[in-house]
Each structure stands twice: as structure tokens, then as C-alpha cells.
Design a protein around this nucleic acid. Structure first.
Length: 156
DNA sequence: GGTGAGCGG
């Protein structure tokens, strides 16, 4: 379909006098329209699935539910200094949720640990390592005033 | 007891 349109346009251009070309293009004789793209979204409407920017914190998923935090640290320590490694467990049942977080001392180490552990096996399960999503330490400013009606923000 | 995509405390 596009070929037919292009061929027709080419034939028309070759048959048309030079004066007609000006009606189609003001500058370049071969460009029909300036690309109006690269302005809209890239087709992804799920911001949660997007990759996070590099940081020292790594999100590790696909873990075996019996894998403890020590095993996680042990596996990731061969790529850098692990400052913190924890497997997320349910607070009430204490059972592992199958994912965890690994924090390195530097982003360089985190990068090495990410590419070094992503897709690797750990306790028989293929794990996935990626940069952890930047989440606010403090809860989002829902209500800046406390029950007394005063501003309760006295820290940084 | 133990699910199999996900972003904790």
C-alpha cells in the first residue's frame, strides 16, 4: 500500500514541471513531510513496568522461597560490596515472597552485580536482578498537618 | 501449607 502511494508520488513528481514541485515541498525536493513523530508516548501506558534508573539498590525477583537473605548477600557479594541484602517476607506468616533487595556500596558495583546475577540460578530458580524502583522513604505528602492542626514536618 | 508476578521496612 505504501509502495503504491510512493510510486505514484514519484511518477507524479517526475512528470510534473519544476514549478509544481514547489507546491509539494518548500525546501528539499525529496522530503514530503517533516516527521511529526517523536512527540507522543512510546506506546507504554504502564509506568510500573518501566525500568528504574541506575542506583545502588537492586530489585531481585524470581527467588526461591526458601532462599534466605544471607544466601542472597552471599551470591551478590562476589560482584561488589553488599551493604544490605534482604528477602521480603510476609510480616504475618514470615514466608518469603520470592523477591528481595540488594544494596551495594556504589553504583558501579550495583551495575556489575546486576549484569552478573541477572538470569542466573540461585537455589534452582532463575532470578532477575534490576535496579530497584525509586520509592519515597517518607510517605507521600497526603496531609501536611497532624491531628493538632500543626505542621508536623520538622525533619529535613 | 505454600502460590510464581511483583518493588520492602
Amino acid at each position: 500500500m505504501a509502495l503504491r502511494v510512493a510510486a505514484t508520488a514519484v511518477m507524479a513528481a517526475r512528470a510534473a514541471p519544476r514549478g509544481m514541485m514547489r507546491l509539494f515541498s518548500t525546501t528539499s525536493p525529496n522530503s514530503f513531510m517533516p516527521p511529526p513523530i517523536a512527540a507522543m508516548g512510546n506506546g507504554e501506558g504502564t509506568p510500573g513496568r518501566e525500568q528504574a534508573p541506575p542506583s545502588t539498590n537492586l530489585f531481585v525477583s524470581g527467588l526461591n522461597k526458601r532462599t534466605p537473605s544471607e544466601k542472597l548477600r552471599e551470591a551478590f557479594s562476589q560482584f561488589g560490596q553488599v551493604v544490605d541484602a534482604r528477602v521480603v517476607t510476609d510480616r504475618v506468616t514470615g514466608y518469603s515472597k520470592g523477591f528481595g533487595f540488594v544494596r551495594y556500596a556504589s553504583i558501579e558495583e550495583a551495575e556489575k552485580g546486576r549484569v552478573g546475577m541477572d538470569g542466573k540460578f540461585l537455589d534452582g530458580w532463575v532470578i532477575f536482578a534490576e535496579y530497584a524502583r525509586p520509592r519515597p522513604e517518607r510517605p507521600p505528602p497526603q496531609n501536611m498537618t497532624n491531628s493538632n492542626g500543626y505542621n508536623s514536618y520538622a525533619r529535613e
